[in-house]
C-alpha cells in the first residue's frame, strides 16, 4: 500500500518551474531519502505533499487518514516567545504529560522537560522536534534537512535514532538531506532530485549512477563506501537482532 503516491508533479514559483514530471511513491515502513543540490526543488516537494504549495499539474494521493509527523529544519521563533519543551510537546497533541515525558525520555532528553527551548543545544533541539513529531504515532515522518547545524557525529546519532523509530513503530520516513554519506547508509531508497528525478534506487546503485556522480562528484561515492563500512560494523556490535525492513 502506498502511503504517498505522486504522479507527474509540476510545481512553479512564479514563472520558474521548480519541479516537473516528478513521480514518487512511499510505501509503509520504508526510509526514502531525497538528495539534490540547492534549488533542486526538495523543499517544494515536501511543501506540496503537506499541502503548503499547490501543484501546477500532477496528482498527489495520500492514503486515507494518513497521519504525518513533520520535523522542520528550524523554528522561526526569537527570544521574545517563551516556550518550555513541555509546552512545545503539547502544542498540537492532546496527549498527557506522562506520554510527553516518556517520549522525551526515549529521545534521550528527559532532563530538559522544563527548559526553555531557546536554551537547549542544537542536538537536544532536534531530538525534541523528532520526539514531538512521533507523539501522534504518525504513519509517515517527513524530515526537512533536520540535521542542519549538527556536526557529523551529531547527525550520525540523529539518523541512528530515526532508524530506531522506524524499527519500533514501522513508520515510513521521507527525508530531505544534504548529509549524503550519513543519510544514504540509513536509507532503503534514495531519490536524486534536480527539478526532476535524475535517478533513484538503493543507496549503492544511486551512488554509482553517472548522473549522481556528475551532480555530487565521484568523491562522495568514496566517502559513502567508507561510511557504510563503519556503519555496518557498528550494527554488528550493537543491533544483532535488527530485522531487515518489514
Amino acid at each position: 500500500m502506498n502511503l504517498i503516491r505522486i504522479e507527474n508533479l509540476c510545481v512553479n514559483y512564479g514563472a520558474k518551474a521548480v519541479l516537473h514530471g516528478v513521480d514518487l511513491n512511499v510505501n509503509a515502513g520504508e526510509i526514502v531519502t531525497v538528495v539534490g543540490p540547492n534549488g533542486s526543488g526538495k523543499t517544494s516537494l515536501l511543501r506540496a505533499i503537506i499541502g503548503a504549495t499547490s501543484p501546477q499539474k500532477g496528482k498527489i494521493t495520500l492514503k486515507d487518514n494518513l497521519k504525518i509527523g513533520y520535523v522542520p529544519q528550524r523554528l522561526n521563533f526569537d527570544s521574545s516567545l517563551p516556550m518550555t519543551v513541555e509546552r512545545f510537546m503539547h502544542l498540537s497533541n492532546n496527549i498527557n504529560k506522562k506520554e510527553c515525558f516518556s517520549a522525551l525520555e526515549k529521545a534521550g532528553a528527559p532532563d530538559i522537560f522544563k527548559s526553555q527551548i531557546s536554551q537547549i543545544s542544537g542536538g537536544q533541539f532536534q531530538r525534541v522536534l523528532l520526539a514531538r513529531a512521533i507523539l501522534n504515532k504518525p504513519d509517515i515522518l517527513l524530515l526537512d534537512e533536520a540535521t542542519q547545524g549538527l556536526d557529523q557525529p551529531g547527525s550520525a546519532l540523529f539518523y541512528k535514532h530515526i532508524e530506531d523509530v522506524r524499527r519500533e513503530t514501522n513508520c515510513a520516513i521521507l527525508m530531505i538531506s544534504h548529509d549524503l554519506h550519513v543519510v544514504m547508509s540509513t536509507s532503503d531508497r534514495v531519490i536524486c532530485l534536480n527539478g526532476h528525478v535524475c535517478c533513484s534506487g538503493t543507496p549503492a546503485s544511486v551512488a554509482s549512477d553517472p548522473e549522481y556522480k556528475a551532480m555530487f562528484g565521484a568523491g562522495t561515492a568514496g566517502t559513502l563506501a567508507l561510511y557504510q563500512h563503519h556503519h555496518d560494523h557498528d550494527h554488528d556490535h550493537s543491533n544483532k537482532e535488527v530485522e531487515p525492513n518489514a
Binding site: I50, S92, L142
Partner: peptide
C-alpha cells in the same frame, strides 16, 4: 491560539498538522 502558535513557529509544521 494553538494553531497560531504552531504556524508562528513553523508554517510547514502547521500544514502537516492539518492546519
Amino acid at each position: 491560539w494553538s494553531a497560531l502558535l504552531i504556524s508562528t513557529l513553523n508554517e510547514e509544521m502547521a500544514y502537516a498538522s492539518g492546519l
